[in-house]
Simulated assay, not measured.
Amino acid sequence: MAFAVIAGLLPICEAWAENSLPPRLEAIRARGELKVCVWPDYFAISYRNSRNSEFEGIDIDLARALSSRLSVRLGFVETNFISFMDRIEAGDCDIAMMAVGITPARARRVAFSRPYLASPVYAVTTQANTRIRGWTDIDSPGTVVAVAAGTIQEALMGRSLRRADMLVVAPPRTREAEIQSGRADVFMSDFAYTRRMLFMHDWARVIEPPDRFGETLFAWAVPLHDPAWLAEVNGFLSAVRADGTLTRAAARHGLTPILIR
């Protein structure tokens, strides 16, 4: 009997716990600050420019627009794709604006805005690499494929590779360093990050995928069980899409090809 009573109370307790979380929008306005999680190495998305240490990218522009809409100051919280959900759950940030790929596993821990970008997966190797000339060379015996820990590509390539070996790269190591050192032959990433490689490194060569391999929708991530905050974020996205702010920001950072209009 006692076990039955406890079991019956569990849904009630869980609902109470969810509803007892402080409403995020209310908390943001009370503190007068919007705390935004960003990954500072995400070129064209949420990137710290090494020349001036300033953040730049489409999500930096849009974070500023969102804080302006809310009439609060803006604070950036640096994170990565291994720990951003921990930061959201801990209340360290109110939203992750760092082009978060939507996956079922992530959706169990965070809520997603409507998507605003969509990108397949690309491969990056060196100009000098004669082993990897085209896409079909990637999944071959003896090839080492690098992926960043916690990213969409880690799970995708883990499922997809049959003959090649996968190397998971966690900070402070970088995929670029693994390629240049020869520890990996190729690394996988999305449109935005691979544009960075072409922009910054003359040794880099990008291989386009067939049939939009691994195409992923990207959105912003917010805490679960806070419908008012999610509605505010989606309302903001609708507004910047309607007034052209989103289109202009995508063009400014070279992301028009992957913009969802």
Rank of each mutant, 00 (worst) to 15 (best):
W229Y: 10
W229D: 01
W229P: 00
W229S: 00
W229V: 03
W229T: 02
W229H: 03
W229G: 00
W229E: 02
L230T: 04
L230M: 09
L230P: 01
L230W: 03
L230R: 09
L230C: 06
L230A: 11
A231F: 06
A231K: 10
A231L: 09
E232S: 03
E232I: 01
E232Q: 09
V233T: 12
V233W: 03
V233K: 01
V233A: 06
N234V: 14
N234K: 10
N234H: 09
N234T: 13
N234G: 13
N234W: 11
N234Q: 12
G235A: 08
G235S: 14
G235D: 12
G235R: 11
G235I: 07
G235H: 09
F236Q: 12
F236R: 11
F236D: 10
F236G: 08
F236S: 09
L237P: 11
L237E: 11
L237W: 13
S238W: 09
S238G: 15
S238M: 10
S238R: 12
S238V: 10
A239M: 13
A239F: 10
A239L: 14
A239Y: 11
A239C: 06
A239Q: 14
A239P: 11
V240S: 08
V240R: 07
V240Y: 07
V240M: 11
R241I: 02
R241E: 13
R241L: 07
A242V: 06
A242P: 05
A242M: 07
D243Y: 09
D243R: 11
D243F: 13
D243V: 14
D243L: 12
D243G: 13
G244M: 02
G244E: 02
G244P: 01
G244R: 02
G244F: 02
T245W: 11
T245P: 05
T245F: 10
T245K: 09
T245S: 14
T245L: 11
L246W: 04
L246F: 10
L246A: 04
L246H: 05
L246R: 05
L246N: 04
T247D: 10
T247A: 15
T247G: 15
T247Q: 13
R248V: 05
R248I: 02
R248L: 10
R248T: 12
A249C: 08
A249I: 07
A249L: 07
A249S: 15
A249P: 07
A250L: 09
A250Y: 02
A250E: 02
A251V: 06
A251H: 10
A251L: 08
A251P: 05
R252Y: 06
R252V: 05
R252M: 09
R252S: 14
R252W: 05
R252G: 05
R252N: 12
R252Q: 15
H253E: 11
H253Y: 15
H253G: 03
H253R: 06
H253D: 09
G254V: 06
G254L: 05
G254K: 05
G254R: 04
G254D: 04
G254T: 07
L255N: 00
L255I: 02
L255V: 02
L255W: 00
L255C: 01
T256H: 01
T256Y: 00
T256V: 13
T256K: 12
T256W: 01
P257I: 03
P257T: 04
P257R: 04
P257N: 03
P257V: 04
I258T: 04
I258N: 00
I258V: 15
I258M: 05
I258Y: 00
